[in-house]
Design a binder for these strands. Sequence first.
DNA 1: ATAGTCACTTTCCTCTAGGTACCTACTATA
DNA 2: TATAGTAGGTACCTAGAGGAAAGTGACTAT
Lengths: 130, 130
Amino acid sequence: MGDTTWKTAAASTDPEQACPIAPVVDIVFSRWTTPILWTLNQHGRQRFVELQRRITTITPKVLTQRLRQLERDGLIVRTYHPEVPPRVEYEISDLGRSLAPLFAHLAEWAAVNLDKVDRARHAYDNASAH
Amino acid sequence: MGDTTWKTAAASTDPEQACPIAPVVDIVFSRWTTPILWTLNQHGRQRFVELQRRITTITPKVLTQRLRQLERDGLIVRTYHPEVPPRVEYEISDLGRSLAPLFAHLAEWAAVNLDKVDRARHAYDNASAH
DNA sequence: ATAGTCACTTTCCTCTAGGTACCTACTATA
DNA sequence: TATAGTAGGTACCTAGAGGAAAGTGACTAT
C-alpha cells in the first residue's frame, strides 16, 4: 500500500530507468572515446596526427567525429591555430581529468580479472561444444 | 546467437593498442550489459521476467542475448530449474561482484558531473548556432 | 612544376546491435 | 473452451557506428 518503490519517471528513451550509470556509459565508454580520453590523459596535449599515430587503427573521419563529441560534452578542449599548415591541439579538460581515478580503477580491474574472463569463455565454449 | 562470430573473437581488431581498458569496456559497458549487471547486483538473484520488468525497455530477445554473453564471460550465473512453468534464475558471480566498487565510483561521478556535461552541451550548441 | 603537410570533409559501403512480431511446450486457472 | 504465464527461439528489418578512399585549401620545400 504505502510503498513508493515504483518508477514515476518520464517515459522517454531510457535503459537508465533502472540504472543511474547508463548515461555515463553513453558519454564516456565507447569503442573510440575511451582510447582517446586515455591517451589524452596519459600523454597530455596533442595534435590530430599524434592522436592518429597513437591510436593506430582509427580513421581520420571517426577521429574527428569522436573529438567533436568529446569537445561538445566538455571532456576535452580544442585549440585551433590558424597557421599554415593549420595546427590544432587537443587536451583533456578539468571535467575529463576528473575521470582519471576511475580509469585507473578500471585498469586495475583489467589487470587482475581479464584473464578470468578469458578462462570463463573457454570453459563455456568447451562445455557447450558437448 | 546462432552465428559463430564469437568463436574466434580473440585477436580481431584492436583499438586497445594504446589503451589497456578498452577490453573491459567491450565486456562490461554496453547499452544493456551495464543495466543488467547493475540490477543483478542491486536486487540479488532474479528471474527472467523480473529483469524484464525492471529494465522496462529491453526486449526478450536482447535480454536473452546479453544474459548469454554475460554468462559466457563469467560475470553472471544462470540456474535452470526444469519445472513446469520453467524457472530460470540469474545471479551475479564473484567476478561480476568485483565490479561493484567500480560501479559505485561511476555512480558517484555521475551524480557530481552529469549536469556539467549537460551545461557543456548547451554552451557548445549555442556557440555554434552563431 | 611537383610533391608534401595538416586537419579535416565527402561519398559510399558494410556490419552488427537492437527492434518488431510471431512462435514453442506445458499447465493452472476462469 | 480459452486465456495467461514462463523462458525463451526465429525470421525479418532498421539505424547507426564505423571503414575505405579520395578530395580540399593554403601554403612550403625541392
